[in-house]
């Protein structure tokens, strides 16, 4: 669902801290028809220009709070990511992305689904790695975007 619209096209920017480019970020939405408790958010399969950036390099900014790791989000079992709201996906990459167009391939993993599933116990101890479609409920395919790096911060 919403394959073409999960990433805001004008949101790809380099992240700057203390005058240094420390990575890049982009704005994403729920790949579903509803929101969910933020604890269920399990990260992204993310590839930019053929280079994969796994979850250890990602942090996620939502609900007016500083970017958090998925290990931190996992413990926020009563905080809700509402359907209307964007989240900002930050990726650590010293020097950031070069100016111009980039090919982004992305899949969101949110461990939300309908009721009890055979995978429940397994996903408590070892949640799926994003990219396989597991834990991606309504949008299980990787989606590709061509977007241009913008100036300024998200």
């Amino acid at each position: 669902m919403f394959e073409s619209f999960l990433v805001r096209p004008d949101s790809l920017r380099n992240d700057v801290a203390n005058g240094e480019v420390v990575g890049f970020s982009l704005a994403v939405r729920h790949a579903n028809y509803r929101g969910c408790y933020i604890s269920l958010h399990n990260g992204y399969f993310l590839e930019v220009d053929g280079v994969q950036y796994d979850r250890a390099l990602q942090t996620f900014e939502v609900n007016g709070k500083n970017p958090r790791t998925y290990e931190q989000l996992k413990t926020q079992v009563w905080e809700h990511w509402d359907y209307d709201d964007e989240g900002i996906l930050h990726v650590a990459l010293p020097g950031g992305l070069r100016p111009g167009m980039h090919t982004i391939r992305l899949q969101q993993s949110v461990l939300a689904a309908y009721g009890y599933l055979p995978t429940d116990d397994e996903w408590v101890t070892s949640p799926p790695v994003p990219g396989t479609g597991l834990g991606s409920d309504k949008t299980p395919d990787i989606v590709s975007y061509e977007i241009e790096l913008q100036n300024g911060a998200n």
Binding site: Y37, L40, V77, G115
Partner: peptide, 12 residues
Amino acid sequence: VGMDVLQFRDHV
């Protein structure tokens, strides 16, 4: 209404 049984993440 829904029911996401992994909300607490440390148990079903």
